[in-house]
Computed example of a mutant assay.
Amino acid sequence: MGNTDWRTLLPMELEIVADELVESPLNNILHDDEIAKQVAQGTRAATVRVWRHAPVQGLVVSRRDIAGANGERAMATMADEGWPIFVRSTGGTAVPHGIGMLNFSVMFPRQHEKATTDAYYRLLCQPLIDWFVHLGLAATTGEVPGSYCDGGYNVQIDGKKIVGTAQAWRGGLAGTTSRHPGYVLAHACIAIDLDITEAISAINRFYGYTGAAVDVQPEAASTLQERMRRPFDSAQAKRSLIEFLEPYFTAQGIIVRCQTALADRPL
């Protein structure tokens, strides 16, 4: 893995937003891309978004997961079963979608020629690890065999996956004067209080319909509520994470603007 210190990627100014497009589950997911394009063009500062899915149960998958006729049939079948499929711009495999998940998205302009995906994953994961410590939990990153959307930058507690991560790079390094200014979108899905067994069953059915050789084990994952051993829903988690992030980034010497008023908006 690369040795770039993730702190060198931090901007001088950062906006923390809590936007949620509750009227459209798909637009709510793709809103990250719209913000990231504005960041790339220089019309807004580097942005962190803390947000919940619209209150519709489903799965979020990559474009590769639904390629071909099998993918189209799988989408139709899952919709009939009450698990609609939503397609994201980042990679990885299927993750649960619904009110029990909290999302943490980082959208930065592409300005660092020697930056690595590893450094951006560390930038994404370290604030979450430190937030978990703030909540009284020890966390680390690493693969969790048998977990959904497994990867080296899962965030895990007690050896169980709590957070899945993905990343997308778009455009180039030329900056805002380029015809195609670039951005990096790094995204984390945090399991807060969903039924993880039911969600993983849906993931396995989806891949069964596509013909993919994927077998996800429910015991490999958990939720933040289970690890905390007390009630903790996605609304509480959203408020808690935003309240943690503002002083966290300020302590790094960043000028932070935070839309904390949106944190309490109901879905």
Results as ranks from 00 to 15, higher is better:
Gln126Arg: 14
Ala166Val: 07
Asp130Lys: 10
His134Arg: 15
Gln126Gly: 02
Pro145Tyr: 04
Tyr153His: 12
Val163Ser: 06
Gln167Asp: 03
Trp131Pro: 00
Val155Arg: 11
Gly172Asp: 02
Leu137His: 10
Leu123Met: 13
Leu123Phe: 11
Trp169Cys: 05
Pro127Tyr: 08
Lys160Val: 11
Gly151Lys: 10
Ala166Asn: 11
Asn154Tyr: 07
Thr116Leu: 12
Arg122Cys: 04
Gly151Arg: 08
Asp118Trp: 14
Thr141Trp: 01
Tyr148Ser: 08
Lys161Pro: 06
Lys160Met: 14
Val155Ala: 06
Ile157Met: 10
Tyr121Glu: 05
Thr141Arg: 07
Gln156His: 15
Cys125Tyr: 04
Pro127Leu: 08
Ala139Asp: 05
Tyr121Pro: 00
Leu135Ser: 04
Gly159Arg: 10
Ala139Ser: 09
Glu143Gln: 12
Gly146Pro: 05
Ala119Asp: 04
Gly171Leu: 04
Ser147Gln: 10
Thr141His: 10
Cys149Trp: 11
Asp118Tyr: 15
Gly164Ala: 13
Gly151Gln: 04
Thr141Ala: 03
Tyr121Met: 10
Val163Phe: 09
Asp158Tyr: 06
Glu143Asp: 02
Trp131Ser: 07
Asp118Lys: 15
Tyr120Met: 01
Ala168Ser: 14
Ala119Phe: 08
Thr140Gly: 13
Glu143Arg: 12
Ile129Phe: 02
His134Pro: 04
Cys125Trp: 09
Asp150Ser: 09
His134Leu: 11
Val144Ser: 02
Gly159Tyr: 01
Ala166Cys: 06
Thr165His: 09
Tyr120Glu: 03
Ile129Leu: 12
Thr141Lys: 08
Leu137Cys: 02
His134Met: 15
His134Gly: 02
Leu124Gly: 00
Trp169Lys: 13
Thr116Ser: 14
Tyr153Ala: 01
Pro145Gly: 00
Gln167Arg: 12
Leu123Arg: 12
Val163Gly: 00
Val155Glu: 06
Phe132Val: 09
Ala139Pro: 03
Tyr148Thr: 08
Gly171Asn: 04
Thr116Asp: 11
Leu128Gln: 11
Leu124Pro: 01
Tyr153Glu: 00
Val144Cys: 01
Cys149Ile: 09
Thr141Glu: 00
Ile157Cys: 05
Leu124Arg: 10
Gln156Cys: 11
His134Val: 13
Arg170Leu: 11
Ala166Phe: 02
Pro127Glu: 13
Gln167Phe: 09
